[in-house]
């Protein structure tokens, strides 16, 4: 039952991605690339890139894309529903509890414990994207020939711009795309 699998996978992604934004990324990678092989790592990188350029949360974008690729619009709807369902239940329960108890010390403790782990997860998933963008085959290169120097240049340039001027990420990504077009055309 592919629909059930889709729903269950994205249910888990929705349930365990805490912290929003890129926090969902490692979970999506695990479910969709490692576990089920629904997307290749390079397709996964594409969907992360597309997510960055289009409105909407990454998890929803990924759910739609994966569902669509596997079994069309019904797949997209099922995956998206799975992704959103845990949020609906948990958020409404929490809201109810919150208004009842306001400051739950234990809840805050759990969240505090999670934060460094969430950062580490994103770092790990981010590193595999860096490898994919910069090195042939997405693994640590054994010789300098396997490094994509244009991509490496764009990567370093973007990182400097982002750190120094706090530029809007959309603008940086668009700039990187234009730079890729120009540089890959020339060389």
């Amino acid at each position: 039952m592919i629909y059930l699998q889709l729903f269950w996978s994205f249910f888990q992604i929705g349930l365990f991605s805490i912290g929003g934004g890129y926090a969902a990324m490692p979970l999506i990678q695990h479910q969709v690339v490692d576990l089920h092989g629904w997307l290749t790592m390079s397709q996964f990188a594409d969907i992360i890139t597309i997510s960055g350029m289009t409105p909407g949360p990454i998890a929803i974008n990924a759910a739609t894309f994966v569902g669509e690729q596997i079994c069309g619009l019904p797949g997209a709807l099922v995956a998206t529903a799975g992704c959103v369902f845990p949020s609906c239940v948990i958020v409404m329960t929490l809201a109810w509890l919150y208004y009842k108890y306001r400051s739950l010390e234990i809840l805050q403790g759990i969240l505090l414990g999670l934060r460094p782990a969430v950062v580490a997860m994103i770092a790990s998933a981010g590193l595999s994207l860096v490898f994919l963008a910069l090195f042939a085959g997405g693994v640590l290169p054994s010789s300098l020939d396997q490094v994509d120097w244009i991509a490496a240049g764009i990567f370093v340039g973007c990182l400097v711009v982002l750190r120094r001027w706090k530029t809007d990420p959309i603008a940086v990504m668009a700039g990187a795309g234009v730079a890729g077009w120009i540089l890959y055309s020339i060389f």
Partner: peptide, 16 residues
């Protein structure tokens, strides 16, 4: 080509 460039850009955004 655009996607390859943007992928390097996204990697930078995530590092940031």
């Amino acid at each position: 080509m655009v996607m390859a460039g943007m992928q390097a850009g996204v990697a930078a955004v995530i590092c940031d």
